[in-house]
């Protein structure tokens, strides 16, 4: 390209040459990563497509902006300055479940919220991953004996990683996210199809006195669900 034809454009071949020289000579090694060394001069990688996709999924996770209770405060701290989860490729939270890969469940699940959480989870595109943050998502935590508390988020949706603590420190959450990324990169994940609620016909329930009594109140043709808390650990 001659400078006469394009008077305002510098001759970039000169710049490129200088940059290349600087890199080759080792003065500027910003781009000379170990990965580049391994590739040599070839622009191609030979790998399995599945493996590549897993690596991509683990390296770029879109989190769902999903706050429930106390743990969400520590989750916000993890997203924000100082801990900055973005450094670990698990970036800025998305407000819509349809754009998210990972849902962090930060808090106690109660009977009224469980169906809503299930719906949010269902709206996420697959493959999707779940991080259970805090004791409440493991077992109900300090509120386990409550009449209204679901004893662990796993009653409702499958959990890939449990992070214990009440609440877990941001460091613990970062560690959990890193562990999840490791698992995703290795192609592991919990099954997507799970036992959600016990969806049963009313007639399938064990016919005890209470059920008999309730049967009068509820239309027998109607489907019911039963929070199966008696059997939960």
């Amino acid at each position: 390209m001659s400078s006469q034809q394009h008077p305002f454009v510098t001759d970039d071949s000169k710049v490129l040459t200088e940059t290349r020289d600087a890199r080759l000579a080792g003065q500027d090694d910003r781009f000379n990563s170990r990965l580049r060394e391994a590739f040599g001069s070839t622009p191609f990688i030979l790998t399995k497509f599945d493996k590549f996709m897993n690596w991509v999924r683990g390296s770029s996770m879109f989190m769902l902006q999903f706050g429930i209770a106390c743990c969400s405060i520590e989750m916000m701290h993890t997203y924000a300055v100082k801990h900055d989860l973005d450094r670990f490729a698990a970036g800025v939270p998305r407000a819509s479940p349809r754009q998210a890969d990972v849902i962090i469940i930060p808090g106690t699940i109660v009977s009224k919220f469980a169906p809503r959480m299930k719906r949010v989870y269902d709206q996420m595109p697959e493959p999707k991953f779940v991080i259970g943050m805090g004791s409440c998502t493991i077992s109900g935590g300090p509120f386990q004996e409550g009449y209204n508390v679901i004893k662990g988020a796993e009653e409702v949706i499958p959990i890939d990683i449990h992070i214990p603590g009440c609440p877990p420190r941001p460091e613990a959450l970062v560690y959990g996210v890193a562990k999840l990324q490791e698992r995703i990169a290795n192609g592991e994940s919990s099954p997507v199809v799970v036992k959600p609620y016990e969806l049963e016909q009313f007639g399938d329930l064990e016919r005890d006195e209470i059920v008999e009594q309730l049967a009068e109140d509820i239309d027998t043709d109607d489907l019911v669900m039963r929070y199966n808390w008696g059997d939960s650990p």
């Binding site: 009224k112 509820i218 109607d222 019911v224 008696g230």
Partner: peptide, 25 residues
């Protein structure tokens, strides 16, 4: 509590172990 809840949980005769059966609607 959800509208479908049966019983009043802080009353004396409330039985927490009684299953809450809720119509899917």
């Amino acid at each position: 509590l959800p509208d479908t809840w049966q019983g009043h949980p802080l009353s004396m005769d409330y039985d927490q172990d009684r299953p809450q059966i809720v119509s899917l609607r």
